[in-house]
Nucleic acid binder design. Structure first.
Lengths: 225, 225
DNA sequence: TCGCGCATTAATGTATACATTAATGCGGCT
DNA sequence: AGCCGCATTAATGTATACATTAATGCGCGA
């Protein structure tokens, strides 16, 4: 569950990583406001690197800087969820398709399959957290195999934005049984170099996931997450 | 040709806008390196807002911060171009499709048609710069009508990254005659609420644009732009 | 002479001091 | 009594001073 951007060990990047983690863990809850000074204090840093970190996090869509009202940890509304799922659907499907056209190393393919097996294992023992983690890895890896670095970055950003919500609703959802059949189908298509099928299958998979999430939100009348 | 983010009149945002413009006009050429101090000097600001602006621009993919080597104005390689066009293809097509499902005001549709007419006019008098501007407006407006704010943001970012390259190759390209037929077809599909056709047509349009650009790059052996 | 390592220094990274601004409430005016 | 406007002040925005770091070149030794 740790952070991503270990570009350097500058205080700014430490602040970025730390704040990200605090957001994901809920220590900085969605919708809450925070003064630069407080955050600087909390991280034992001066305001400068914290300000810089906040600018980065704002660019990543995780916080909103509202001068004199504090930095708001951006909540996710049902509409946001819809927007993000639509983007993930398109870009991941693109990646799935191009992954099928590249000749991937057996290692890469094996790694992908490994995450699918892990999801099966996790599901069989009812460990939803482990399933979620493996699912995340699968999607991340899939996108990486697509070979478009910008897609990878954007998908990571969007996934981060819904991470909290996904975790929060994890045990409200029906067990994702169909999910893994989809994953295997995508993998098979990629293995056989069938870009069209890989793309279409993954697209359907993601579209279904969106539907589930939206219905969940309606059913529980969740406003923000 | 002016900038976008008029969030406030803070020095940081002024710096963001100014630097963006300097990049687009080529005053800060692709691939060139610049010290924070120089840039601060040039903008008559202290390093602080300039540093903050650079962080924002880095997040937008326009510059790369390379400690002790200066800030590099990111050049666009043929590979980058391919990545970006692929993303634009997917996200704009998504937008075209959803635009067709929403009931848009006649004003919105008229505005879109207006840009198409403007492209025709510009082409008929051989004013490529005007054509490019109208084309840009068309795509921006189309995406806006899709109603997904994140798609709008991402497409704007990606478009910015290739803006220089598009302008630079403007008069190397064959006259974009097919282009406007495509635009009209997309508009018609949106008008008639035919999401599938809107999406597919725009997808084909963008894919063709990518091909043209890639061949252009090969033909002229352009390495970075 | 060649190469290694340290001193120098230029650039960035960080802290802090200072300026500006907008929210807040108080006081006076009507 | 209600409301307008100014003073207060807390927060952000900006500049600058200071710390750290990595590139550079010089000098010493082999």
């Amino acid at each position: 569950m740790n952070a991503s951007k270990r570009k350097q060990n500058s205080s700014t990047m430490v602040a970025v990583d730390t704040l990200r983690d605090l957001i994901f863990t809920g220590d900085l809850p969605a919708g809450s406001d925070h003064l630069e000074t407080e955050l600087a204090e909390a991280l034992s840093l001066s305001r400068t690197p914290v300000r810089e970190a906040l600018l980065v996090l704002e660019a990543q869509g995780l916080v909103e800087i509202r001068p004199r009202k504090g930095v708001r940890i951006k909540p996710i509304s049902p509409e946001d969820m819809g927007e993000i799922y639509d983007i993930l659907t398109e870009l991941e499907s693109l990646a799935a398709g191009t992954a099928a056209t590249r000749d991937l190393s057996v290692g890469d393919l094996a790694a992908l399959e490994q995450t699918i097996n892990e999801m099966d294992r996790a599901l069989s023992i009812g460990d939803l957290a482990a399933w979620a983690k493996a699912d995340d890895t699968f999607h991340t890896e899939l996108v990486r195999l697509g070979g478009n670095s910008r897609v990878t970055t954007i998908v990571a950003m969007m996934s981060d934005q819904v991470r909290r919500a996904r975790l929060a609703t994890l045990d409200l959802r029906p067990a994702p049984l169909q999910s893994n059949a989809d994953h295997r189908a995508v993998l098979t298509a990629i293995r056989s170099g069938d870009a069209k099928t890989a793309r279409r299958t993954h697209h359907a998979h993601r579209t279904a996931a969106k539907t589930v999430m939206i219905q969940l939100i309606k059913a529980y009348n969740l406003k923000t997450l």
